[in-house]
């Protein structure tokens, strides 16, 4: 499947600094909404995690103990201990715990390289967090919140249902 154009377009045309700024806002919001997110990581909080959507021209580097996320244009991705690759919609669904990581991995829709233990710890930590991206994003969107939330949820639902269809 391909991502809805509304989701991918900004990553192709916007300057990196703008994407990064937006990503950091979302990340900060998620961290604020889920302060216990990194508790479960334990010793793995000091590691660097890369998330590389196969359908975007950029990758994301997360450094949990520094509460930092950065965006990098391919192929200039910095070194990370653990790296996860897959379609953006899958990475987002995993972030929210909407799909089972093992099942996606076994179906080979997802690749994991490097420190498996760290990635597993992060996966489990995320899974316990009940992250709801549209809701989390909407909280920072002021008067337009309901609109943004509805739009984000709709995109997610459409993307996920199409993805599910390709697994069966």
């Amino acid at each position: 499947m391909t991502l809805p154009f509304a989701m991918t377009a900004p990553f192709r045309i916007a300057p990196l600094s703008v994407i990064e700024h937006a990503t950091r806002l979302v990340f900060a919001q998620v961290v604020q909404q889920h302060p216990d997110l990194f508790d479960r990581l334990g010793e793995h909080a000091d590691k660097r995690y890369a998330f590389v959507p196969t359908d975007l021209p950029v990758g994301f580097l997360v450094e949990p103990s520094a509460r930092r996320i950065s965006v990098h244009r391919k192929p200039h991705l910095p070194v990370a201990q653990a790296c996860m690759g897959g379609k953006l919609v899958l990475l987002l669904a995993l972030l929210e715990g909407q799909i089972d990581g093992d099942a996606v991995f076994f179906s080979r829709s997802l690749t994991i390289t490097g420190d498996m233990e760290a990635m597993l710890a992060l996966r489990n930590a995320l899974d316990d967090c009940n992250i709801d991206l549209p809701a989390d994003i909407a909280r920072m969107s002021g008067p337009f919140a309901p609109l943004v939330r509805r739009a984000a949820a709709e995109i997610r639902t459409r993307a996920l249902s199409r993805e599910a269809a390709t697994w069966n």
Binding site: G97, Q98, I99, D100, G101, D102, A103, R123, N124, D127, D128
Partner: peptide, 10 residues
């Protein structure tokens, strides 16, 4: 127990 909550729920 090592599987995600989505798996458990389903």
């Amino acid at each position: 127990r090592q599987r995600g909550k989505a798996y458990v729920a389903e």
